[in-house]
Design a protein around this nucleic acid. Structure first.
Lengths: 245, 245
DNA sequence: GACGCTCCTTGACCCAGATCAAGTTACAGG
DNA sequence: CCTGTAACTTGATCTGGGTCAAGGAGCGTC
């Protein structure tokens, strides 16, 4: 269960996405093919409300979704960012624990929960693969706890940008004239909700990082990173390890 | 895989602890018995350092352990609190992601990693049970992210006390003259590290909650809760749901 | 090209919680 | 019983980031 690929190529998905261990092969894949279907969501649309019955699991194919919690008085905290290939849903859980919202137009590849769970019982590798993915998410959540509890606003912004850069880089290595560049997929307010800040502070810290030459801005959303090590240093991460997300 | 008990009774453990699905019964249990062993740790002793090779998994039998991260400049954030019955370790991961420290004298029931993983492969229910537990931990971590990112110091303290009360209550329902009472298993500094505060702020907020009659203090560590609903209200939790940990 | 959006920036001021600095318990060991 | 030390409390002051407020920039629509 170690080094083989963990991505499956859906017959229709434009990208490979990880949902099932690839070693379990054709038989399993064909069964998955039979029960899968696609759903599209518009930017801003809520996919599931916290507490709602959730009758499917799936993974993001294109677009960005977020996991958020809201207190009665409106304070919001984003607790997860779902990029293409990320899995959504909790096998064995009837209801959703958090709001899931599409922040861009979004396509998901879904499996009805019951058949997926049946297949999970029949195919041990799936549970093991899901366990592995859930452990990754747990590590990421715990890294985020350090950020939320102990980092300064500037470090939080630098961390967010470097994490998005890392995720983007792993998908489609993109460099312009030797400079790493990233599109921020979130508004300032969404970044604030992710980082436990206000949107004004996010804006101010981004301006400060720009003034100090740590990043370049091209429009509001497009960031160039002249020196990734400098950015990581600003993020306060020890060495270059950690920070999975 | 749904409603059956998920606790196993070790032959020596004073309490039942959850590590394996009980439905998988005698055969599996006896195999587990063969590979399990016990380890004791003194209060303050570090069980594993982040990045260390980790050659066992296990669960807490008695005592309290914590999961923490530290930045180079010494800022610390606790990312998990391990009470009796909690599982430690990541099947499939060679190294520990966080420091694990015994905050009280501690006994753990351990399994060497290799045989445990072998058994996991051979017994599908184990992976499913671990997945379930990991999903619980992930939900708890995400609840904690809301606390760290958005709650006030007073709400954080109230949340921590109510969570510890809930955990204690589920183990050994303890009430003195109709009043719920809890021992805080952590120093003020450890609470601060858990809540993303300083120890001074923790102390001040505990004093404030006492002055306002939300809690009573008997010594430094023993807390009485005259009105659990009042406490939950102070914690800012919607209704009485959520907050697993 | 002017309107009406939503998103973003910047300034002025304020306050919750951090920091610095004394004390005060609580309790273990001699 | 005294003494030392770790844990805790409380006060005084400072400050990072929140709050309130006023624009600006980009962009789709008529």
């Amino acid at each position: 269960m170690q080094e083989h690929s963990v991505h499956v190529q859906c017959s229709e998905c434009p990208i490979r996405h990880r949902a099932v261990c690839a070693r379990c092969e054709t038989d399993e894949l064909s069964r998955l093919e039979q029960i899968k279907y696609y759903r599209s969501f518009q930017a801003g649309q809520t996919i599931i409300w916290s507490g709602d019955r959730m009758e499917f699991v799936g993974s993001v194919v294109t677009g960005i979704a977020t996991l958020t919690q809201t207190m009665e008085d409106g304070r919001r905290q984003m607790v997860g960012l779902l990029l293409p290939s990320d899995f959504v849903g909790r096998p064995g859980r009837p209801v959703a624990a958090f709001d899931v919202t599409a922040t861009t137009d979004l396509v998901m590849c879904c499996f009805r929960k019951k058949p997926f769970e049946d297949m999970m019982s029949a195919t041990p590798h799936i549970a093991q693969r899901l366990l592995e993915m859930t452990l990754d998410e747990l590590d990421a959540a715990r890294e985020w706890m350090l950020l939320l509890g102990r980092k300064t606003a500037r470090e939080k912004i630098a961390s967010l940008i470097s994490i998005i850069a890392r995720r983007e880089a792993s998908l489609h290595m993109r460099r312009a004239k030797g400079m790493l560049s990233v599109d921020l997929p979130l508004t300032r307010e969404e970044m604030a909700d992710y980082l436990g800040l206000t949107l004004e502070t996010v804006s101010r810290q981004i301006s400060a990082l720009k003034k100090d030459g740590v990043i370049n801005l091209e429009g509001n959303r497009h960031v160039q990173i002249p020196d990734i090590d400098r950015l990581l240093e600003e993020a306060g991460d020890d060495s270059d390890g950690g920070m999975l997300v």
